[in-house]
C-alpha cells in the first residue's frame, strides 16, 4: 500500500491517469483518489497543507498494513535541467533550519539531492538544493505513521536560472510529471514492495483476532496472547492455535496457560 501526496491538481492528473485512481472521497477536506493499492491526496501548495493532507490520509489507513509514503511534485534548482528528477536525501525546512534525512535503501535509477522547503516561491536558488514548498511539511508527519525508509520525496525540476518559476504553467507541470512516470513507477513499486514485506513480517497470527474475541482478555493478557501467538507462528507454523483443549477453558488465564504449556513442550522437546 502506498499513499501519495501532491500539491497541485496539475501534478496529480498524470498520476491519476497512469495509476487509474478514482475520486472516491469527495466530502473530505482534501480530494482523495484511490485504487486497491494506492491513495493520492491533493493537498494544495505549501508545507502546512502538505502536513494536514498527509495526516488526513493517514487517518484512512488500515492499522494492519504498513503504508509507504511518497511526496511527488515540482521544484526549482539553480542549474539542474528542466525535467530532471531527484529524490530527497536531505530535507531542510528553510524557516526553522531543521533537517531530515530520508534513508536511501532502494536501488533506483533516480539520483538524490538536497531539498529545501521554502514558504514562498524562491527564484534565486542561493544554495545547492532543490527549492520546493511541501517536503518539510510532508516528511515528519508521514514518519509518524511509517518508518522513514518508507517515506520519500520525488521532485521534477520545473524552473532554474534560465527558466523562472513564473513561467511554470499547469500544462508544463502536468507534462513534467507525465515525462517521469517511468521513474515514479519504479519508485512506487520499490516502496510498495518494501511496505508489503514489512507488513508480512509483522502479520499477527491469523486466528489471533478470533481467539481474543472468544474469551475476555485484559489488556495485559492480550499482550501475553499476542506474544504467545507470535511464538506459536514460529514454533508451530501452519498449525491451528485452536487446540482441542482450549474449548473447555472458561477463563482467559487458563487459555494462556494452556498455550504456554504447549509451547514449552515444543521448546523443551517434552
Amino acid at each position: 500500500m502506498i499513499n501519495i501526496v501532491v500539491a497541485l491538481p496539475a501534478e496529480a492528473r498524470p498520476l491519476l491517469d497512469h495509476f487509474r485512481l478514482r475520486d472516491k472521497q469527495k466530502n473530505t477536506a482534501f480530494p482523495v483518489y484511490r485504487n486497491a493499492d494506492m491513495a493520492l491526496v491533493v493537498a494544495g501548495p505549501g508545507k502546512v497543507a502538505a502536513a494536514a493532507a498527509t495526516a488526513v490520509l493517514a487517518g484512512t489507513d488500515k492499522a494492519s498494513t504498513k503504508t509507504a509514503w511518497l511526496n511527488i511534485g515540482i521544484a526549482g534548482h539553480a542549474h539542474h535541467a528542466i525535467g530532471a528528477a531527484f529524490i530527497a536525501h536531505r530535507i531542510t525546512d528553510h524557516a526553522t533550519g531543521t533537517s531530515w534525512y530520508p534513508p536511501q535503501i532502494l536501488d533506483l535509477s533516480t539520483p538524490t539531492e538536497n531539498m529545501r522547503t521554502v514558504d514562498c516561491p524562491e527564484d534565486g536558488y542561493p544554495e545547492a538544493a532543490l527549492y520546493e514548498m511541501e517536503a518539510s511539511g510532508f516528511f515528519p508527519v508521514a514518519c509518524r505513521f511509517s518508518s522513514s525508509e518508507l517515506v520519500q520525496c520525488f521532485k521534477v525540476i520545473s524552473d532554474n536560472n534560465t527558466q523562472p518559476a513564473t513561467a511554470v504553467t499547469a500544462k508544463l507541470c502536468n507534462q513534467l510529471i507525465a515525462d517521469r512516470l517511468a521513474d515514479i513507477e519504479q519508485l512506487v513499486n520499490a516502496l510498495t514492495g518494501l511496505a508489503d514485506e514489512y507488513t508480512r513480517w509483522h502479520a499477527p497470527h491469523p486466528e489471533l483476532e478470533q481467539l481474543s474475541g472468544h474469551w475476555h482478555f485484559t489488556v495485559s493478557q492480550q499482550h501475553q496472547l499476542h506474544q504467545l501467538a507470535r511464538r506459536w507462528q514460529v514454533l508451530a507454523p501452519g498449525k491451528s492455535l485452536w487446540l482441542e483443549r482450549l474449548r473447555e477453558k472458561n477463563k482467559a488465564s487458563e487459555v494462556l496457560h494452556c498455550i504456554q504449556q504447549h509451547l514449552d513442550a515444543i521448546t523443551t522437546g517434552a
Binding site: 534513508p103 535503501i105 518508518s147 522513514s148 525508509e149
Partner: peptide, 16 residues
C-alpha cells in the same frame, strides 16, 4: 540527526 530519529527500522535499513 541521521542516526537517532525515532522513525527508523533497523531491519529495513540493514538492507543498505
Amino acid at each position: 540527526e541521521v542516526f537517532n530519529p525515532k522513525a527508523q527500522d533497523f531491519r529495513l535499513q540493514k538492507r543498505k
